[in-house]
Design a protein around this nucleic acid. Structure first.
Length: 601
RNA sequence: GGGCCGGUAGCUCAGUGGUAGAGCAGGGGUCUUUUAAACCCUUGGUCGCGGGUUCGAACCCCGCCCGGCUCACCA
């Protein structure tokens, strides 16, 4: 990965110190018109938003377009991730949101860079993910220096979880930022000017922590985390003296509870990768270094007096630069609860991305406004089918069809940003008009043996599928298969009961039971006459002629079949279902169902 | 304790000043090939509570109640 990209001007603290006040247009800087309508805007600033003349119109725009309309000049969008372990689906919200912002800017003709950073110099603090002996050895060590789990080809822990598992899902979702790793940036020396400034202004930073967040640092605390020369840990060291070229530090056994320092004490020049700035200082330094103008963050960081506030204050007061525009985004919860890999709640990002089509997964994150929590509970629910249905509905509306129900503001923009393919709005409209099978119907279909999904789809559509439609069908078949295997509730699963579902069958009318008996006789007769009964068509014909003969409405006939075989009142095409069963089993089941004493007259 | 989000039909949710909506579920009906089908009709709501602004409030303002997440140690 080339660094730095030529197009990005790297502001050193020195140059940025004189530029913002005097020549604000000489660098990419967030240009604000009014206050943010999202993020942690205060009530007062919301009032201000409503007062601007275009307010009423702006508020009907899709949120990403709204943001893009507020800025001018080249923009740098940034997002980042600390790779402390398995990344769950919720972590995809940031990348998807930043990607949508990037596309919204580009759609308005605004030059934009999209970067994604990995904080792989941060200390390992996720004990649960290490083997017991590794805990003692690696807790507190920079993630880029912790070995990858057993069996991984990745060079280290961070590369394994983020590089080989998380990033590939980016590609699947059409998200293509320029990736960078902090473990590669520090050694280049690009961070050194910021480190020097931070150390020179250590007292100001300590004061700022108290003022903004009410956080008191130990006396002599310096905004630098040295990598211990003896044990390699970064989470356990405390630096307490800066002489203008080196810092004195100690690696303390009890500085943090989750890792034990080795006791080493020394003095080192904290440059070129020997040390890193603490998170908040580093964040602000990155904004300056890369000229970042837009960067959202999760609500955990965006709380008042929290991490984001500290970094913004540091950016303004230490590095003398206006911080980027923030877009605070809420989390994705599972069943109203926070995702927790350790508690088995919430699946890994790469697993979910593999089982839900990219367009639909993007749609999940882009449908609600960023500051709205998403509740996504796929296990044992119809959440995934409903998500597909809603995607189909918005697609249909985008294609110009009239749909039921209310539509969100600018639904065609929502559809546009949901596309994995990063194409034009016109191309997205063409995609929207494509034929796609309803998730639920596909779920029934795929539970029948020997079904050709493509043929069935073409039959339903009326004409052969186009190549894109075939591709989407394949993707959706895959999604349905995953859903049935991992998430679908039992009601959605079609299974022939081993035992006769007596309760349901008892509710059939005498007429219906008589019909079942008649069908059994006809099956025997057909077999005796040598009539072939291998195909679904043949069985379907037999069912209908038997129903006609008995004077029974077909819908009742089918319902009683479903009751007898599946224990439910509906199901897949009955002829094809029976064709998959042994004829002797069928006649036996029909007769035993007919023999049940009914509760209905 | 601070912050953010939410509370609208049985369920899931849309709807940011102009007669309360959709899907599913429930009830009824149509269809001689049925697909968690389709189509038609239908039941169901003090829009969390109380004030205020307005000719008019689910929507704006103030104050509460409830739920969730989050921060206050680290990132």
């Amino acid at each position: 990965m080339p660094w730095p990209p030529r197009s990005i001007a790297c502001d050193s603290p020195k140059s940025s110190a004189r530029s913002p006040a005097t020549t604000p247009s000489s660098w990419p800087s967030p240009t604000r018109r009014g206050s943010a309508p999202y993020g942690h805007a205060s009530r007062q600033s919301r009032r201000a938003t409503r007062r601007i003349p275009t307010g009423a119109r702006i508020r009907t725009m899709y949120w990403a377009d709204e943001l893009a309309a507020r800025v001018s000049g080249p923009q740098v969008v940034n997002d980042s991730k600390t790779p402390s372990g398995t990344v769950h689906v919720g972590s995809l919200r940031g990348p998807v949101i930043h990607d949508a912002i990037t596309r919204a800017l580009r759609a308005r003709g605004i030059p934009v860079e999209f970067r994604y950073g990995v904080e792989d110099l941060d200390a390992m603090d996720a004990q649960a993910l290490l083997t017991p002996d590794a805990v003692e050895r690696y807790m507190g060590v920079p993630l880029s220096r912790v070995p990858a789990p057993e069996g991984s080809d990745a060079p280290n822990y961070a590369r394994h979880f983020v590089g080989t598992l998380f990033f590939p899902t980016f590609a699947r979702l059409g998200i293509r930022p320029e990736f960078y790793w902090l473990s590669e940036i520090y050694p280049t020396g690009k961070m050194d000017p910021f480190i020097r400034t931070a150390l020179d202004k250590a007292q100001l930073i300590r004061d700022l922590y108290v003022r903004v967040s009410n956080v008191e640092r130990p006396s002599g605390w310096l905004p630098i985390q040295v990598i211990c020369e003896a044990c390699g840990r970064i989470g356990t060291t405390l630096a307490d003296d800066w002489d203008g070229s080196t810092v004195h530090y100690r690696c303390l056994p009890d500085y943090v509870t989750w890792a034990k320092g080795c006791g080493h004490e020394g003095r080192i020049a904290p440059f070129g990768g020997a040390a890193k700035m603490p998170f908040n200082v580093e964040w602000a330094a990155k904004w300056s270094l890369m000229g970042i103008t837009i960067e959202g963050c999760g609500k955990d960081l965006a709380t008042k007096g929290g991490s984001r506030d500290r970094s913004e204050a540091i950016s303004r007061e230490i590095f003398d630069r206006e911080p980027p525009i923030n877009v605070m985004y809420e989390f994705l919860n599972v069943g109203g609860k926070k995702m927790s890999t350790s508690k088995g709640r919430g699946a890994a990002a790469h697993a979910v991305a593999a089982s839900i089509p990219g367009d639909v997964l993007r749609f999940l994150f882009l449908r609600p406004r960023p500051n709205q929590a998403i509740d996504f509970d796929p296990a044992g629910t119809d959440a995934i089918p409903r998500l597909h249905d809603e995607y189909d509905r918005i697609s249909a509306a985008t294609a110009g069809a009239t749909v039921r129900g209310e539509l969100p503001a600018d639904h065609d923009r929502l559809h546009f940003y949901s596309q994995v393919a990063d194409g034009s709005a016109e191309a997205a409209k063409v995609t929207a008009a494509a034929w796609r099978p309803a998730f639920g119907q596909l779920a029934l279909l795929l539970q029948l043996p020997g079904v050709d999904a493509t043929a069935r789809a073409a039959a339903e559509k009326g004409t052969p599928l186009t190549a894109p439609e075939q591709a989407e069908l394949t993707e959706r078949v895959d999604a349905v298969t995953h859903w049935l295997a991992d998430y679908a509730p039992d009601e959605a699963k079609i299974a022939v009961r081993d035992e006769l579902p007596v309760d349901l069958v008892a509710q059939l009318s005498g007429e219906e039971r008589a019909w079942l008996l008649n069908l059994a006789d006809r099956v025997d007769a057909a077999r005796a006459a040598g009539t072939p009964l291998e195909t679904g068509e043949a069985w379907q014909g037999l069912i209908f002629s038997a129903a006609k003969e008995g004077g029974l409405q077909p819908v009742r006939a089918f319902a009683s079949l479903y009751a007898a075989f599946l224990g439910r009142t509906n199901g897949p095409r009955a002829g094809w279902l029976l064709a998959a069963l042994a004829p002797s089993f069928i006649t036996e089941r029909l007769r035993s169902a007919a023999a049940v004493a009914g509760v209905a007259a």
